[in-house]
Nucleic acid binder design. Structure first.
Lengths: 352, 352
DNA sequence: TTGAAAGCGCTAACAT
DNA sequence: ATGTTAGCGCTTTCAA
């Protein structure tokens, strides 16, 4: 009568009380075979009565599929990662998977440990956002760990891992840069600067390299001074980089750029601050654009023009790649995601 | 000789090759008993050779402790939650625990499902940040699910759950409000407004109620118009609320407030925008303060005065409460966390 | 110090 | 349609 005991209730508890075998209970639980309606009903009642929830552990021991995808990120507090993670969680959820998130704080050793943890948890696949997979030169210890992981499950990264057979899902950085440059050039800007980031990060390196490559095509007034990466991706680094750039222009008698591409939006905020402190206006004197389309872009004055990756698509692609790996479906080793430009106040001006 | 096969390697694989019993391998794995050094060494070599990682699943089946704490949050993209989550992950990690994060997107049904998922994963404890536990009136379906959960593990929330025996770790909202009011009053502000949020959220309700309670004590010029909660916690809501407040003051011939407390920092940003659009200066004409100490506070101009909860302490307290529950150590049912005020430009002015 | 064996809770043949 | 049984990979008595 009473709501029930508090003891461990397993499929045996249910089976016994329903007068059936544990297998039958399992069948209704997983809906894997027909069970006579009356029995099924009785079992379901019991399940409800006891609030019985099958152990995902025991299940995972027999099944070889845990329906869990592990994900390692540098830091969820970074809104870019938080957005991508959330998009992954949504995509995974639709496919019946759960995500297991681990932060690495950009530390290579921690990343190795996190991979180990995920392996021990027997997750079905691992997705790594940024971190070591962003390095131009992959950390060897990390690469080793990834190689081990790859033996038993699909490993998807947003960068690359030297020597390990990972799946890659990345933003088409070249295309993104071109979108930005086209927009700026179309608006009449000639002296475009590229600012911020660390050159040992794959995506940043790609930006700088591609920028040099296409400068001619767009008839830009290039100058080494217009490339200033004062290491880092946060506001203060952007501020510092831009200050340095102004300083060099001043000393070397080079005209200030009329537009600045920051490697990400946080850096762009710093760039904007620096420009304002130099008594110049945005976008009238200098246009500014960034990457990532984070919250702040719409909050700050002026709103920041940026590159949007369509997080939903990004997450979807990351997860579907992982699942394809799990299920043995074939996928291209590298998939690119199409960027879009979001034009806002910070660059919205025509120069004659 | 070769690096090895690719087959499933278990404790038996190791045991066999080392010429010992699986029990012995287990002993070195868990360091739970003495093993003769030479054997231990041989076993360790094999473990390394095969990159063997014991299955957390199988382990969890026998042990009753999984060393995993589940955590449900409304949305990690919200920096407040991201900060608290990260603090929890750090605290947990120090104690040897791993966190399993699930987003609920503020949906009560999703929250129920997430609790179920965590229960199935047999996590050792559950921490819920915000969500249904923030409701002034707990959703009954949710409460029911929590009651079930509480039977088998410790459940820690930052709000409350009617009728369920949860542990509560919350910010001392009363104290926080007083810090803000004291600061504003000390600076000579008299007409203090409280703006934003939804009154059906525990923490918001507490702010409004406590504000009324202490208004006399601080000799504030109160007026119903100075309380404006236009539902919500984001920038646009803050903007709208403040616009409405200005409007009412105007129509009713009531002087504008000289200071505004926003229920959180995002709302404060909206309030600031509204004030600027009305051609007023911050803090000269109106001082603004918020809650949460998020990134944006230092990025936006003017920098925003706010309440800081010390995330590290918050996470630590959440996790230690959960662990105390797991280990059966006694803890107070409710623990409060001490807030601090961080004074910045937006309120840094003395009125005579 | 070590091994044998039982058991954790479930699923999946294999019978019936 | 349903029951029996044998694992899944580990830990943990209990003996030796």
């Amino acid at each position: 009568m009473e709501p029930t005991p508090n003891q461990k209730v397993t499929i045996y508890t249910i089976a016994k009380e329903a007068g059936v075998s544990p297998a039958t209970v399992s069948r209704v639980l997983t809906n894997s075979a027909n069970v006579r309606p009356e029995k099924r009903e009785r079992i379901e009642e019991l399940i409800h009565k006891y609030n019985f929830m099958p152990s995902a552990l025991a299940r995972g021991l027999t099944d070889t599929r845990r329906m869990i995808i592990g994900i390692i990120t540098a830091d969820v507090r970074n809104s870019f990662y938080a957005d991508v993670y959330t998009a992954c969680e949504n995509a995974a959820s639709k496919a019946g998977y759960t995500m297991l998130l681990l932060n690495s704080f950009g530390d290579r050793d921690t990343e190795k440990r996190q991979i180990k943890k995920l392996l021990e948890q027997r997750v079905d696949a691992i997705i790594q956002l940024g971190g070591a997979a962003d390095d131009v030169e992959t950390d060897t210890g990390y690469a080793k760990q990834v190689k081990i992981a790859v033996k038993s499950l699909p490993f998807v990264v947003t960068g690359k891992v030297d020597g390990a057979d990972c799946n890659i899902v990345r933003v088409d950085a070249e295309r993104a840069l071109e979108l930005l440059v086209e927009h700026l050039v179309y608006n009449g800007n000639k002296r475009i600067a590229l600012v911020g980031g660390r050159i040992d990060v794959v995506s940043t390196k790609a930006k700088y390299e591609h920028f040099l490559k296409i400068a001619d095509k767009y008839h830009l007034d290039t100058n080494p001074v217009y490339l200033e990466n004062w290491g880092g991706y946060r506001v203060d680094k952007g501020l510092r980089s831009m200050d340095a750039l102004f300083d060099k222009c001043h000393k070397q008698g080079i005209p200030y750029p009329d537009a600045v591409i920051a490697v990400n939006d946080l850096t762009a905020v710093g760039v904007i601050k620096s420009i304002e402190r130099h008594g110049l206006r945005i976008p009238e004197d200098i246009a500014v654009v960034g990457y990532d389309n984070i919250d702040i872009d719409e909050i700050i004055e002026p709103n920041i023009t940026t590159i949007d990756y369509n997080y939903a698509v990004f997450g979807e692609m990351l997860v579907s790649t992982a699942i394809a790996g799990i299920e043995g479906t074939s996928v291209e080793k590298q998939r690119n995601i199409e960027p879009n430009i979001v034009i806002r106040e910070s660059s919205d001006i025509k120069r004659v």
